[in-house]
Design a protein around this nucleic acid. Sequence first.
DNA 1: ATTATACAGGACCAATATTATCCCGAATAA
DNA 2: TTATTCGGGATAATATTGGTCCTGTATAAT
Lengths: 135, 135
Amino acid sequence: MEITQETDYAVRCVLYLSETGSDRPVMIETIAADMCIPRSFLAKILQKLAKAKIVRSFRGARGGFQLACKPKDISLLKVVEAIEGPVAMNRCTVEPKRCGFSRTCTVHPVWKSLRKVVSDYLAATDFEMIMKPRK
Amino acid sequence: MEITQETDYAVRCVLYLSETGSDRPVMIETIAADMCIPRSFLAKILQKLAKAKIVRSFRGARGGFQLACKPKDISLLKVVEAIEGPVAMNRCTVEPKRCGFSRTCTVHPVWKSLRKVVSDYLAATDFEMIMKPRK
DNA sequence: ATTATACAGGACCAATATTATCCCGAATAA
DNA sequence: TTATTCGGGATAATATTGGTCCTGTATAAT
């Protein structure tokens, strides 16, 4: 039922990039230090975020990471799914093949519906909303 | 983000007891066979359900398990928490001591709020609702 | 009372997932 | 050309999950 530590790192990392709003790429090293995330683990996380087009990476000297779009256009769902894959409460709602009961199981629709509740909530929350108001 | 296999077993087990509606206790053996749940694993699960007062156990010959109350009075939340402990999306919302950021972290309230959404949904779903309508 | 039955609970184990770390190669700015 | 920074594969430590087994205890039936 819980998100993983990795997902928590990912969310805080995107939030960090949202808040700094730098036009220069930020190095893994810097983010790791500022957010207390193990450097090499964060590197892996940023790879996933880059594949999901949430951040852009730049190699070489002065390289690093930037948001690929505005905080407002990044939902929590996008980040969570970039790390954990499709959100679901129960495997059987994702791969029904492996659940012999799915056809007759009356719990199945409940998990599906809860999944929608969660996923809608996450989709409706973007990083502009999560950011501290700067005023 | 997913419930565990164990929780899935627990829910299906309570559903089974709801649907059979037997006034005689049902043996672990029987439930295990009917629901395709490993016998000794199910035994552990039923222990947890008994501690949570969701089922009653009877020892000795003709022993077994019965629901401790009506399906209508058992929420999905009760069963899930009997197995997994308090539902939460993020550890930091349960034990804030271990999260140095919780005071300033702007994601924190989001997880808390999502937790409420999920927990409300689970609390609103009881086993009479989950049971097949008998007509 | 005795006995067969069925759960209680502790110890233990295997498989899998999570949380990392390290290294070498590829891109790239200076 | 070189120092820098990410990309990605391999690997390892730890935690969690899923599951078994065995002994003890309660209890219904005889």
